[in-house]
Write a protein that binds this DNA or RNA. Sequence first.
DNA 1: TTTTTGTTAGTACATTTGTACTAAAATAAC
DNA 2: GTTATTTTAGTACAAATGTACTAACAAAAA
Lengths: 200, 200
Amino acid sequence: MNTREKILATALRLFNEQGIDVITIRHIAKEMGISHSNIQYYFPNADEIIATIYVNHIEELNELPIFMADETHKPAALKNSIIAVLEHIYQYRFIYIHFVVIARRMPELKKVYAQRFKIRRTQFLQLFEDYRKQGIVRADIPAPVWENLIRSLYIIGDFWISANELTTGLKGKKAVTYYAGLLQDLFYPYLTKKGQQWVA
Amino acid sequence: MNTREKILATALRLFNEQGIDVITIRHIAKEMGISHSNIQYYFPNADEIIATIYVNHIEELNELPIFMADETHKPAALKNSIIAVLEHIYQYRFIYIHFVVIARRMPELKKVYAQRFKIRRTQFLQLFEDYRKQGIVRADIPAPVWENLIRSLYIIGDFWISANELTTGLKGKKAVTYYAGLLQDLFYPYLTKKGQQWVA
DNA sequence: TTTTTGTTAGTACATTTGTACTAAAATAAC
DNA sequence: GTTATTTTAGTACAAATGTACTAACAAAAA
């Protein structure tokens, strides 16, 4: 691991542990045992580090296999798919805690976020459509309710990290499992009887 | 309005507009046209201002009439009840954007939050129970799903402000109306046919 | 080897911020 | 009217931070 990668790794750890509001380039340098000028050589300021980590994270998320609702997939695959995403989010949890502040300081990152949302929205709608055809979810749900469900899923997906710190305070795998269950239960009332057996 | 109240009002406005990470006591003083020492006379530091505003907000929320599901209530009353809460949240939106950072800096505020959650959780469960007795919501929903629904409602209730800034970017009343609709739609798949007619 | 390029450290400086302290001004109490 | 008390302003200072600049050192190229 070269210096640049070490900086990113150390910054990620410190941001996750203490937050971007208290960690400066000098803190990262001290933690690494190098000079702050050395970090400055790779990143002009802390925001550049944050932006780099953010883009890395989004790229990792986009590289995850897309879950499709074809017949070969078992419900366990859906849950594992959710867990995989939440695990990545947990690794980069500082982003989600400081989401708005980061987006305010670097508006260009909002585009990356919006782009991902747009793609994922279509994928979700497709997934629901496939489930409906298979009789797994109800056919009597109006389209706007599906739309709003996606929005709700996204809000919880983006802010379960913050909610966890404010209330339950679960760590690591336990947090991921708990909130994966929360997301899964959001689907429950949409399931048909067949769908309930399918996920059981 | 005395000086203390003016400080709180100005601080609230600046925090909402620009965030607690950029607004200092000196900014507030300059905006008010008074000396920063004068603010210091009432509040030793900015965190004390934030804590005061936070407690005021929670007290206002707790003073709102509790929505009960007795027969006299129309569904419009439920929606108005949601809107009233979201309007208060919007007025104090900086709190929700910096929720985790505030809670980290002032852990004692977490207790105020946790206390409110506990009370509200019981009220929600009671509400669902009443609705079930009236045949408005389904009787075949397992208890843990109701529990998780409350958690989800809370996450959305606490972070719709942040989600809005990241994506939709709605302002004022429009934001409140949109996210009130989002919350309401979360209930949709739980409704019986009777319940659907009731809210229609 | 010499030269060039890339990497790291050290220093310096202006700015901001929290905080303390003193004094002036305004208001209330006597 | 004089004395306290409260309120406001001004100043000062240490600590932290972003940023710029220079020099030393290491590695690669010539």
